[in-house]
Design a protein around this nucleic acid. Structure first.
Lengths: 344, 344
DNA sequence: CTGTTAGCGCATTCAA
DNA sequence: TTGAATGCGCTAACAG
């Protein structure tokens, strides 16, 4: 009496038999094909329901050559940044009845590689690759026509690879416009690692704005950080020790802004009265710290969504080569920016 | 010339042919069976490597009856809380070469149900179910012998179901001990929904501590919140309007503590000078707000890890029925608690 | 519109 | 220790 209760052992054949049709017909309604008489469809649907049947994905994967699974490869899952991207992506995929297989690489390139390798082979139909470590590996995937979309590439993406990222350039430029409009002229920046596109493009935005206003930025205004809190802390220390202290600091992410804030405080200065501070990301921390941080919101959830949509399109056979999407950012003005102190 | 390059179309048969053995033998080495001559094994392994072969999971799933995939069902992925649990779980699974399929339910019970239903059927070997909405559904799964582990059950778990959660009771008691040792006697609590185990057990901890010190708590000291910021805000307003104002408020999570803090401030009171405030969770926000919040750290990542380990054990055939794990919490004392103001 | 049939790639008997 | 044969549950031609 118990044997039948086991893990949904109802197969498409049982349904076919019970409904008095062929397995092919059941398969058709299962896949929403149009060529089934309405009455038959209803009948089948009913028996499916009454038998509590649902299709075995392994079998479908084997037979149909697809798994309805896509991999999402990312450095980790606990960082807010990745969690949000994952969230947008997974939910979008879910709505299309595609499941997301998460693959944390822990920033280990080799792990990423072996992962992608296996992902390719019958495990998934395609992948979202967030902040990939390895460019060469990406090329291998592309060469084998494995469908994937890169989210927020760390380094510039080889031509022809679909990628989704935030509009770093305009985001940074917005920050600078804001600062300059407030009256700031001596605006320093704490950048990220110089090889990262996020750093590069934000830097370009920074420089473009400065140039637009005819401001000459001496090299001392630029200090390289590492996107971590302590990186921001140390960079800010350097900046604050400058003979001509900047009146504003643009940290290239919120983490570093938090570190910078600490350095500023330790030096007995106030934000924003003595010095304005801006971040980038609009992490949760940005609105929680005091003063609440003026920053740039990256649409992470939407990036995930968008990337998923793109991938789905690829899987659907639509060649989306060369698709490079930059989603608009939004300047969030909070309390960490104000006009510079009087010059006297 | 291009056909061969397609998605790793190398099959076990190709390997067999190329190595001059049978598919059965290849399958054996693939699965680490002992009954293969060392030389043969090496030979096969070599050809596998040179052909860049990796096994097709769908096929293995179909044939072997398992998928090496486990589902992780949770309300959403973007909340820090769930992201951390997922993180611990996914990484643990990954280490055992099991992949995690994420299934966000968006708090919709029906979605959870249909999900679990499909998960069961050939998609996954088992599931981690975080904060499940539906008790009945859990029973169905159990009845069908589908392996799963519940993480942080919202409502009490039926007997015999493996579950992992934080030690709510002792966590709450620790908070109270701390507060009472500081000299507080009028300690109010903002609870969560009364049906949730988290609320219930924390409340028991609260009451047990009070009782241990012979403190009689009038019913007004208890206000029910909803684990959200505004819930904490409104609850605190009620508490602060009490004729005999409490000298300390224990919010049953950090969110509500943040809301409470706001209400306290609006009333012109200071934390911790006028009133002490404690949360629960040790969310990121707890250390970022000012004053940094005294709270209870829930070992979320470890809960995920532990649950994954448990599930893996279940999948391994070890009957772990009735396993109910409570992971220890840790009191994190920060700056939101201090001795009560002098009585005068 | 519906049924028949042939695999998909692999694990697993059962023999040898 | 190895090979041959069978079928997992389903999809996708191809007929009818």
């Amino acid at each position: 009496m118990a044997e039948q209760v086991r893990t949904g052992k109802v197969t498409i054949r049982d349904i076919a038999a019970s409904a008095g049709v062929s397995v092919a017909t059941v398969s058709r309604v299962l896949n929403g094909r149009p060529d089934v008489k309405a009455a038959t469809r209803e009948l089948v649907l009913d028996t499916i329901r009454s038998h509590n049947f649902s299709t075995n994905r392994s079998a479908r994967g084997l037979a149909g050559g697809k798994t309805n699974l896509v991999g999402i490869t990312l450095p980790n899952l606990h960082a807010e940044y990745f969690a949000l991207i994952l969230s947008g992506a997974a939910e979008t995929l879910y709505d299309q009845d595609v499941r997301a297989v998460v693959c944390p690489t822990l920033h280990q390139a080799d792990r990423e590689v072996s992962l992608l390798d296996r992902l390719m082979h019958g495990t998934t139909d395609g992948s979202l690759i967030v902040l990939p470590e390895s460019r060469p590996e990406l090329r291998v995937l592309a060469r084998r026509h494995y469908p994937f979309v890169v989210v927020d590439p760390k380094e510039p993406l080889p031509a022809g690879m679909p990628g989704v990222s935030a509009a770093h350039f305009s985001g940074a430029r917005d920050v600078m416009d804001h600062l300059i409009c407030l009256g700031h002229r001596r605006i320093a920046a704490i950048t990220g690692p110089s090889s990262w596109v996020a750093s590069i493009e934000r830097l370009h935005g920074y420089q473009a704005a400065l140039a637009a206003y005819g401001i000459i930025a001496p090299p001392e205004w630029l200090v390289e950080g590492n996107f971590q809190i302590e990186g921001g802390y140390h960079a800010a220390q350097v900046l604050l020790a400058l003979p001509q202290r900047p009146t504003a600091i643009f940290a290239f992410n919120d983490n570093m802004a938090v570190g910078a804030l600490q350095a500023i405080r330790e030096r007995g200065l106030r934000v924003p009265e003595d010095i304005s501070l801006v971040g980038f990301d609009d992490a949760q921390s940005a609105s929680l710290i005091s003063p609440p941080l003026t920053t740039v919101r990256q649409p992470l959830i939407e990036m995930g969504r968008h990337a998923a949509t793109l991938l789905l399109r690829l899987l659907d056979g639509q060649p989306a080569e060369g698709l490079r999407v930059h989603l608009a950012t939004q300047l969030i003005v909070r309390a960490s920016t104000a006009p510079p102190p009087a010059e006297d």
